[in-house]
Amino acid sequence: MTVSANLITDVPGLLVGQAEDRDALTGVTVIYPETAAVCAVDVRGGGPGTRESDALAPENLVEAIDALVLSGGSVYGLAAADGVASALGARGRGFGLIDLPGVPKSPVVPAAILYDLANGGNKGWGETPPYRALGMQALQRLDHSFTLGAAGAGIGARAGQLRGGLGSASHTTSEGWHVGAIVAVNCFGSVVMPGSDAFWAWSLEQGDEAGGVRPDPSVRVMGEDWGLAKANPAAMGRANTTIACVATDVALTPSEAKRVAQMASAGLARAIRPVFAPFDGDVVFAMSTARQRLGEPKAFNLARIGALAADCLARAVMRGVHAAKDA
């Protein structure tokens, strides 16, 4: 019997690799399907930064990806996907309509970035930002286990006024379907209730995976009391964004994966207040490794997968911030 690690890599067919530049206080997380995987994306934030997200539309040619990159660095961080694509292309992995001698495949590597440029790290990199190299390093470190909290794409993140981080969680259904989530939490909004250390999503916590703090039942949230949200959002610009991926080993079509991504975004709404703001770039990808079939009734079971993905994502947010707290 496989023992759950409560990570997205509990989904069979997935590995994760991470790399950090601790001097610059930034990093990269790569989610790697062992074989090309169906993927979709749901963009809810008002200031997103993505690569190849349009290619994931169900009506477009590409139906599967070779890797997915979550990165710090704002626009500079998109170069992490260049490093991953270059390394995968050298291995002969990627999309090609026709196999032709001497013509390389085109790896499909979508990416999303968060803004960590103003977090105090040394960003004096001139014309050589570290992200391409970090992407390649992360790809070389693929494993079933990985560090939560101040690691990978979450090393320089902030969750409101708290330290943000990299979180993950998973769930296995009674029939053995696996659902998982991974997230880099760098939100404008607060993940904890006003005047409390209890997470907004505390009721979804499994055991004490995020510290086990429970709210005072007498506490009531009044009007626009956002608690430990970042102050002065207008001045913060795009200094926010929560980027995530949910995954399952149940086979999904591109359209079904899109629905799961949309449902999973509700997990961010359960864990962060406010969320999807004009100055957040919140993005959620959904991936399928297709190791098991989606049984009948399909629509109902798809709703189950999407609901579990949302819960896993909310739990991952809590775990990421909790793990980063003492880092």
Rank of each mutant, 00 (worst) to 15 (best):
W200M: 02
G94R: 00
P12F: 12
G83M: 01
L142V: 14
Q18D: 07
A111V: 01
C187R: 01
A323M: 12
L15P: 00
E52T: 10
G96P: 00
M318S: 13
G126M: 10
C245M: 12
L97G: 06
N301D: 08
V41A: 06
R304N: 12
V192R: 15
E209S: 13
V41C: 03
A210Y: 03
A229C: 10
A87C: 11
P297W: 09
A85V: 09
A307W: 07
R163Y: 12
N6S: 10
R273M: 14
A150F: 03
G156T: 09
V28I: 05
S265R: 03
A264I: 03
E224D: 15
D326H: 14
F146Q: 11
V109P: 01
A112N: 04
A67M: 07
G89N: 03
S255K: 12
L15N: 00
V28N: 01
E205M: 03
A229M: 02
L7M: 12
L302S: 09
V69P: 03
S71P: 06
P110L: 13
A290V: 00
V250W: 05
A55T: 03
V213S: 05
F188W: 11
F285W: 06
F300E: 15
R51V: 11
E296Y: 04
L139Y: 03
D99W: 00
D197K: 11
E209G: 05
Y115T: 08
T128Q: 09
T289I: 11
L7Q: 11
